[in-house]
Amino acid sequence: MFDWHSWLGLAVAVAIALVAALAVAVVTKLIVLAATKRREWPRALTTKARHPYRLLLVVIAVWVAISLTIPGMAWVNHLFLILLIAVGAWFVGAIVGFAIELGMGRYRIDVPDNRVARRIQTQLAIVRRLAYAVIVIVAAGSILLTFPGVQAVGASVLASAGIVSIVAGLAAQSTLANVFAGVQLAFSDAIRVDDVVIAEGEWGRIEEITLTYVVVHIWDDRRMVLPSTYFTSTPFENWTRSSSELLGSIEIDLDWRVSPAAMRVELEKILARTTIWDGRASVLQVTDATAGFVRVRILVTAVDAPTLFDLRCFVREEMVEWLQAQDPGAIPRTRVQMVEELPRKKGVVAEKTHTDQVGLFTGSPEAEERATQLTSAIPVIDDASAARDRELRLR
């Protein structure tokens, strides 16, 4: 009679368990595909959860085989229990992730007017991360509770749960604030994935929203990582909050000889040659005419911010080329007026100009005479000259 409690019996039992697990996996796949033959999601489900499901079947089958052939090995049972919890958490996470991705796939963000789709994509992404976090925490806690020592520690911790919660709350205050801010951002519709924002003076798109931080894809392919609390406590610009359509301006300083009417006609021709103008608005106005220049402002519209930027550059380039070729007089110039000084006639003294201020030495001919006397040269007389003058006076 074959001895199942030997090493050979263990090997045979494990081989049979592996074959049985493989057969169950194949039968399950065939049943799922047959039940939903006309749908695409069953194939995606089998691809997503194939590895954790097969590994879960293998762990269960091998555990049963070892328990039947070599009973009484407590450490083996404990090891397989831990493996079962870990693989089971992986399998549950794969199912939850597939279900959320299936819902996200119904809302595409690569189409025009995708505000609702972006909002749902953002919320489902946050829910997926929360689900993964809960699954990992529950699995880790379940594994720890399989150890007898941890169970005793858990009882004592529960007895002082109030103190522990206060200490943990103080230690993780900033982290918890970011987590709550991330959840608030996801469900308050303040920002969504693919929103165009101005944050920290940089223009970019919301690339990723997590529980603790937000990744902004800047226009030059840099990534700016901001904490979630930034978008709940700091003012920022959201260019696609209610709609992605935007209005932009092009300002050009030109000469006074420019013809706004001719520019309006050319603007219509320029916009007719491009497909990135959405046709909502096109305005050309003279908004200022000072300091020797005429400021012309052109307003155009586009479906979103990147398209508007390209449209503004296109209109500006086309208008500059048209001005150079068709209306060179409109090119701005700086004018300098040269004034020739009149020649002076001999014997003619220019009249002095006086200010309106009247004082002791200014404002009248008498005052200026007094100033001349005080500021004229004073003769210096030496001692010998002074003595001769005294002798002459005495004679």
Score class of each variant (00 low, 15 high):
residue 309 F to L: 10
residue 372 T to H: 10
residue 151 Q to E: 07
residue 43 R to Y: 07
residue 309 F to D: 11
residue 339 V to E: 06
residue 162 G to T: 13
residue 334 T to K: 03
residue 6 S to N: 05
residue 4 W to K: 08
residue 283 V to N: 11
residue 204 G to S: 04
residue 250 I to T: 14
residue 140 A to Q: 02
residue 20 A to H: 06
residue 145 L to P: 00
residue 2 F to I: 15
residue 268 E to N: 15
residue 280 R to W: 04
residue 385 S to F: 09
residue 66 I to P: 00
residue 54 R to L: 15
residue 201 G to I: 02
residue 249 S to H: 15
residue 165 S to W: 04
residue 160 S to Y: 08
residue 69 T to F: 00
residue 290 T to I: 06
residue 374 L to W: 11
residue 271 L to M: 06
residue 176 L to V: 13
residue 384 A to F: 05
residue 116 V to R: 08
residue 98 F to S: 03
residue 78 H to R: 11
residue 47 T to R: 06
residue 190 A to M: 11
residue 256 W to Q: 14
residue 275 T to A: 10
residue 54 R to V: 15
residue 202 E to R: 15
residue 20 A to Y: 03
residue 335 R to I: 15
residue 389 D to E: 11
residue 328 P to A: 06
residue 39 R to Q: 11
residue 270 I to H: 02
residue 236 F to C: 06
residue 145 L to I: 14
residue 14 V to Q: 07
residue 360 L to S: 08
residue 305 A to K: 10
residue 169 G to D: 10
residue 383 D to N: 10
residue 282 S to G: 08
residue 115 R to N: 08
residue 340 E to W: 03
residue 162 G to M: 04
residue 89 A to V: 12
residue 176 L to S: 09
residue 159 A to W: 01
residue 331 I to V: 14
residue 253 D to M: 09
residue 191 I to K: 00
residue 290 T to D: 15
residue 263 M to E: 05
residue 89 A to F: 00
residue 152 A to P: 00
residue 257 R to H: 10
residue 184 Q to L: 11
residue 57 L to P: 01
residue 185 L to D: 07
residue 322 W to L: 13
residue 155 A to R: 12
residue 2 F to R: 14
residue 126 I to T: 13
residue 243 S to M: 02
residue 283 V to W: 01
residue 110 D to G: 06
residue 57 L to K: 01
residue 166 I to E: 12
residue 186 A to P: 07
residue 373 Q to A: 11
residue 21 A to L: 04
residue 48 K to P: 00
residue 292 G to N: 02
residue 9 G to L: 02
residue 110 D to Q: 02
residue 51 H to D: 08
residue 136 V to P: 01
residue 367 A to D: 01
residue 155 A to F: 06
residue 60 I to C: 13
residue 253 D to I: 03
residue 387 A to V: 12
residue 173 Q to S: 10
residue 325 A to K: 09
residue 38 R to M: 06
residue 381 I to D: 09
residue 293 F to H: 14
residue 31 I to T: 10
residue 310 D to W: 03
residue 237 E to D: 13
residue 29 K to S: 14
residue 25 A to W: 04
residue 232 T to Y: 00
residue 259 S to A: 07
residue 17 A to T: 09
residue 28 T to D: 11
residue 334 T to W: 01
residue 186 A to T: 09
residue 93 G to N: 12
residue 333 R to L: 11
residue 18 L to Y: 07
residue 304 D to F: 05
residue 95 I to P: 03
residue 365 P to Y: 03
residue 43 R to W: 08
residue 50 R to W: 11
residue 164 V to H: 04
residue 226 L to K: 05
residue 197 V to P: 02
